[in-house]
């Protein structure tokens, strides 16, 4: 099962390696990890996508909570939530394909943010499945480069991960 864990950590040097180190030392998977400071500059927010059985996810959250730098965490996938990932895709755009890719980008509500004689760079945001679907639709042959930000997310409604 895929799980998304959001973590508030003290914005201190070494906090990221404590968390990444915990995952590698205990053999947990990390599918993606994003981190950035929050509106409160003393805190960073980290979003980790991981997989494992219920027992493993329980251990992961307990072990994360045990780290002295971790202030609070929530498993987003336990309740209603929104997840988003941003992707930049550089594709070959020649001749008739230029229009075709433009149309596909519109269908996926992406934006072309760089144009050259032979290529586009497309910005696309959505959940991971949507980004996967776009890559499939464009087709492997056209793709020059793909950059994904990793997943970030937030709970729906009034629930919040705050100090």
């Amino acid at each position: 099962m895929r799980h998304i864990i959001s973590i508030l950590v003290e914005n201190e040097s070494g906090a990221l390696s404590r968390i990444a180190g915990l995952f590698s030392a205990r053999g947990y998977n990390i599918e993606s990890l994003t981190v950035a400071p929050t509106d409160d500059t003393s805190l960073s927010r980290m979003t980790i996508v991981t997989t494992g059985t219920e027992e493993i996810i329980e251990q992961i959250t307990k072990q994360l909570n045990k780290l002295v730098d971790v202030v609070r965490l929530v498993e987003l996938t336990e309740s209603l939530h929104i997840e988003r990932e941003m992707m930049l895709t550089k594709v070959t755009a020649l001749g008739g394909m230029r229009d075709e890719i433009k149309r596909l980008t519109d269908i996926f509500r992406g934006r072309i943010i760089d144009v050259s004689d032979t290529s586009y760079v497309i910005e696309l945001t959505g959940d991971s499945d949507k980004l996967d679907a776009f890559i499939k639709a464009v087709g492997g042959k056209s793709i020059i480069e793909v950059v994904r930000s990793g997943v970030t997310g937030i709970a729906r409604g009034e629930k919040a991960l705050k100090v």
Binding site: E55, E58, Q59, K62, Q63, N65, K66
Partner: peptide
Amino acid sequence: VDPASISKNVK
């Protein structure tokens, strides 16, 4: 005292 010790190896 350590929640992570509970149900780690044995439920």
